[in-house]
Amino acid sequence: MNISRTKLPRLQFLARIVRKEIRHLRLTNQRLFPDAFTPEKAGQLETDVELAERVDAFVSRFGRLQDTVGDKLLPRYLDAVGEATGPAIDNLNRAEKLGLIGSAELWITLRDLRNEMIHEQLLKHKTRILSKLWERIGVQRIDIILKHRNTPLKAIHRAAKKTGIRL
């Protein structure tokens, strides 16, 4: 695929950021899930401050990476290789068709799960689900997605844009 010369520097810059965010996520991932994350461990969250902070770090790093890849890297990548870009959902579907991500629906589901967890502020639940999530989809799958530089846009951004008043 040809990438236009003028668009390359910006893309390379974003790629560096994404690689850094992947390193950060991996680090927290290794520290948080060296073994299975059990319900017993989840029970310690209220008393074990360090563990709770690790979980928080994991959730926010996961979220940041998904946003950078989905909202920034994907549209710019599609644009640079001459693909049409549009609303987030269209970019995701395009990315799925191009084989950049496994499933646009799963991408949206993961984002919704994140929002659900942040919204609920239920740390206990959060970690349990998160560990289940890793078991289910596996770190590998997410790694593959990142290597192929997939990108989705968030539905909430569209909604916010639609109703938003510029300040």
Partner: peptide, 23 residues
């Protein structure tokens, strides 16, 4: 079981099929 995951899956599937509509 896993209510948060179920919520996300329902919202994610509907959102995807309705063109990114927030659910």
């Amino acid at each position: 079981e896993e209510s948060a995951w179920l919520i996300a899956r329902i919202a994610g599937r509907i959102s995807h099929r309705l063109g990114g509509q927030k659910i």
